[in-house]
Design a protein around this nucleic acid. Structure first.
Lengths: 125, 125
DNA sequence: CAGCATCCTGCGTGATACTG
DNA sequence: CAGTATCACGCAGGATGCTG
């Protein structure tokens, strides 16, 4: 069996991590899901908070991110099989264990990364 | 100094983080640098450890990653201005503060990510 | 040795339209 | 509502070759 196919497989945990969270929204999705299950549409609109309401994320994109996260085992898809459609996404155990990592990232980011439009000189070192 | 370029600017620390470490090698470079300064060539060959010696990283690519990291303020470039050229890269204070974050990532990754076939405990820290 | 200049390619991202 | 199907585009990433 081998090697060569697994999407997430890599000798370096960092590289594997990179692959897992590749994409603009995966981290944010997982983070948003930490408070509980959310529906497709909720995630979609939730991703826009803070943005100047430009265009919404393309469904194709969100769809793929969600699928990738599911295949990574971070989230779980629950289809209620009703009409109109209702689908919820929630963190798996693995996904929950990942939340603190994102927390660390956010924590570091909020201290060392210029956020918002306030670009405070990163400089001086 | 201080270019108010919005290169890293984003309202969401996570997104800013994503931008900062975008690219296949940035995280690994920073991690490699945690043990001390390294020269261009050392970083280049160091990035190959574990790979089956396919092709080396294109200089253009490494160069760009290095430059981006420098502009992000994570690493610092030191040119000795000699012949033949000698250039060292080292972590800045900011870069050092970022190492634990990568540590958290590696730690999580080594536990939850399938790492190819060779899972050699990264644990030892 | 430590890069830069040029060309090329695949994929991630986005916009639009359509469906069960 | 929760997606899928198509088309298009920009850019990261790799391959060479050259230079101070």
């Amino acid at each position: 069996m081998g090697q060569a196919k697994s999407t997430l497989t890599c000798r370096c945990p960092v590289a594997a991590f990179q692959k897992m969270i590749s994409g603009k929204y995966k981290l944010r999705i997982v983070w948003d899901l930490k408070d509980g299950p959310r529906r497709y549409g909720e995630i979609r609109t939730g991703l826009l908070r803070g943005q100047d309401g430009t265009s919404e994320i393309a469904p194709r994109v969100l769809s793929r991110e969600l699928k990738a996260l599911t295949e990574s085992g971070l989230i779980d898809r629950k289809d209620y099989g009703v009409v109109p459609p209702k689908v919820e996404y929630r963190l798996t155990r693995k996904g929950k264990s990942f939340v603190p990592v994102i927390g660390a990232i956010r924590n570091w980011g909020s201290r060392h990364l210029a956020q918002g439009n306030v670009v405070e000189m990163v400089a001086a070192e």
